[in-house]
């Protein structure tokens, strides 16, 4: 069936199967920053923003998203680059597979919470698993990013 999505501000009309998940739709449309880590919305790797809210795309039926705003990391490139600068300074990036999804969640948090504490950051990002870094360097980098007024 035909679905009209708004991806990173651009209207995209596409034909999708009834049972198709947003993750597959986006990858099919070459938004390859959206990736699969599991299939049970438990790792956070496939996170996109739906109307600004972090949402696992692996469990979201595309047909339900007609006229909804989808944001992938390509839609927040400047903020992602800024976050990456702080990740770089802290050595917080390793395999990078989950980084775009984390950038999106951090971006949403920045809009939602004013000056979050470390504990609030952990709670907000708890659904974004990382097996590489041990998280601590990420948290330091995120705190620096939130303070960055540039």
């Amino acid at each position: 069936m035909l679905v009209n999505l708004i991806v990173n501000g651009q209207p995209r009309s596409i034909e999708v199967a009834k049972g198709e998940f947003l993750l597959d739709t986006l990858r099919h449309l070459d938004y390859l920053s959206v990736r699969r880590g599991c299939d049970s919305s438990s790792c956070g790797v496939c996170t996109v923003l739906v109307n600004g809210k972090p949402t696992p795309s692996c469990s979201l039926l595309t047909v339900r998203l007609d006229q909804q705003e989808i944001t992938t990391v390509e839609g927040i490139a400047k903020e992602a680059e800024k976050l990456a600068t702080h990740f770089g300074h802290e050595g917080a990036d390793q395999c990078g597979y989950c980084n775009p999804s984390m950038a999106l969640t951090v971006y949403a948090m920045k809009k939602e919470l004013k000056k979050p504490t470390l504990e609030q950051i952990k709670a907000y990002l708890v659904g974004n698993l990382c097996r590489c870094t041990g998280y601590q360097a990420q948290h330091i980098a995120i705190l620096h990013y939130l303070e960055d007024q540039s």
Binding site: L32, S33, A80, E81, L83, A84, G91, D93, G96, P100
Partner: peptide, 14 residues
């Protein structure tokens, strides 16, 4: 201190 050479591109979803 040397940031990863690929950190930015990966964060930006390349």
């Amino acid at each position: 201190l040397t940031p990863s050479i690929d950190g930015k591109g990966l964060m930006m979803g390349r």
